[in-house]
Design a protein around this nucleic acid. Structure first.
Lengths: 151, 151
DNA sequence: CTGCACTACGTACCTTAGTACGGAGTCAAG
DNA sequence: CTTGACTCCGTACTAAGGTACGTAGTGCAG
């Protein structure tokens, strides 16, 4: 049997026991309400993977709610796929936006590092300036509010 | 003059007025303690850009504390660069890790979408399965604790 | 010169994501 | 068959990141 107690599962997943119970309450992982050994929870390694996924997804800015949405995406051929496709496509969009932003910050950091030991007059000195240089300045109207239509 | 009131700055940056005050307290943006017009805060468009940066960085999983660290990176040729370089390199590392994870999720979503309308037996049905397939299964010891050395 | 919108400041309150606690039951090595 | 480690459950507490609120002071369009 490849089932783990909550303690072992927590250790393997790199979280605390309480966190697992918390995720269970939140519905992020199915609680094993089957009559388990002496009233103790028992987890398949699958659940450990799931918890790891949750943590990794958090690191890149997904909330638990969003992660639940991700995890609930299932391509069941017997169900109507179009809805799942749509939701998956929407998530993909989000992911791509995150990648783009990450890429901008990455270039800015690169530039910063490159500019660092350069002698002579530096133009790009901070992340902000590198970003502006890298993205071509997002225009700020600075005026033109006062009478707004949509809220 | 290209200075904005807090209300205009907030609108331009896409946040609430209270959020700007909050960021000021946190030290994320410099508070204009210069004797501004009638006791009112006044912001350069630069600050609006900064706030936008904060929001974008949050979207990809940086905390306000980390964002402050990012923003404080400055390649000043007159200061000692090595420390800035080091911190920038560390951040770059973090960014790359985020990108990798984002990439994995992206592939999993791609695969999910591709698998969706396929007739016949589906093997990869959920994000988790696509991920496992994409990453080649991280081994879980499942045993070998009970007597641990390092904490 | 008046009125409404905007601002200041401080404090209180909210949500998200855990963490900690206490008392009672369970397991298994010795 | 005892004892120390582990688990159960419910409730309480934290920290981060805002958001709202009340009172009082500006600013400017009409």
């Amino acid at each position: 049997m490849t089932e783990l107690t909550i303690g072992r599962a927590a250790k393997n997943a790199g979280v605390g026991v309480e966190t697992i119970r918390f995720y269970e309450r939140k519905g992020l992982i199915e609680q094993p309400l089957k009559p388990r050994h002496g009233g103790y929870r028992s987890y398949p390694i699958e659940t450990v993977r799931r918890i790891r996924f949750v943590r990794q997804a958090q690191e890149i800015g997904f909330s638990l709610r969003e992660i639940e949405e991700l995890l609930s995406l299932r391509a069941d051929p017997s169900a109507d796929c179009s809805e799942v496709r749509e939701r998956a496509a929407a998530k993909l969009e989000e992911v791509d936006q995150k990648m783009a932003q990450l890429g901008r910050i990455r270039s800015a950091l690169d530039e910063l590092i490159a500019a660092c030991p350069g002698r002579g007059a530096l133009r790009k000195c901070s992340i902000m300036e590198s970003l502006v240089a890298a993205t071509g300045e997002t225009r700020v109207p600075a005026k033109a509010d006062h009478q707004e239509s949509a809220r």
